[in-house]
């Protein structure tokens, strides 16, 4: 469902490419960790998948769509099939938990009835039932990230992209978020998660793709972080 076919990405004013001839296939329903140091190309890969950037050469295919050829006005419809979770949560501070999750449905024009039915369902899935009326500032970091995951998942995306979702959380809270992502993965949703978190990667034993200077240096089923394969 996701294919990188000899993809390179060269940013302007950068001496070397962020991605260099990357070849990769990720199937529907997989759970993939994207690891590597800062500047290794993880973020570039994620940005290419959601069409925040275009590849310099090669093709990126997501959900059978050639992302580079996607017309600008079709991008919104394309993104509705994706869920995105950010390291800094990106919640709206003056909206309640319920409204934050509902926001994802409001802006794509879902009816009030659909929203009333779906949001509590998702809040229960992420373990936030009873906190619908809280503001983000009244929640812990882990709870805020759950709200963000709920918002990303509320439109039932086939692919969930998470960029360092546990980067701002302590280890025990991170475990909770990982369990949540695992639960979402079991519903058939593909999950791609960029991370630095060694403990989490080792614990989950999922597919690991390691990047270094724009190259894939390791692609391993049920891997652990430490096997750098030098």
């Amino acid at each position: 469902m996701i294919r990188f076919d000899h993809v390179s990405k060269q940013y302007k004013n950068s001496p070397r490419p962020a991605l260099d001839d990357v070849d990769l296939t990720i199937n529907q329903g997989e759970f993939v960790f994207l690891v590597g140091s800062s500047g290794s190309g993880k973020s570039s890969m994620l940005r290419l998948m959601v069409k925040e950037e275009k590849p310099t050469t090669g093709t990126v295919t997501v959900n059978d769509v050639n992302v580079a050829k996607l017309r600008n006005r079709k991008v919104p419809a394309f993104r509705r099939k994706l869920g995105i979770v950010f390291q800094d949560f990106r919640l709206l501070p003056n909206k309640t938990v319920f409204e934050n999750v509902a926001f994802g449905m409001e802006v794509i024009g879902k009816s009030r009835r659909e929203i009333r039915a779906r949001v509590p369902e998702v809040l229960e899935l992420v373990g936030l039932e009873g906190k619908e009326k809280r503001l983000p500032s009244e929640l812990s970091g882990g709870e805020q990230q759950r709200v963000a995951v709920a918002r990303a998942f509320v439109n039932n995306p086939s692919l969930l992209i998470a960029d360092e979702p546990t980067g701002n959380l302590d280890p025990s809270t991170s475990v909770g978020i990982m369990k949540l992502l695992d639960r979402i993965n079991r519903t058939g949703t593909t999950i791609i998660m960029a991370t630095h978190d060694v403990a989490i990667v080792d614990q989950m034993r999922k597919r690991i793709i390691q990047l270094d200077s724009g190259h894939i240096v390791r692609d391993q089923e049920r891997g652990i972080y430490g096997d750098a394969g030098h």
Binding site: V50, N72, R73, V75, P76, A77, F78, R79, R80, K81, L82, I84, F86, R90, L92, F103, G104, V107, I108, G109, R151, A152, N155
Partner: peptide
């Protein structure tokens, strides 16, 4: 920008943003 980045991420159309 936070709000609009979220809107874009969840697939709001340019018009509605």
């Amino acid at each position: 920008r936070r709000e609009t980045s979220i809107m874009r991420a969840v697939g709001a159309s340019n018009m509605s943003i």
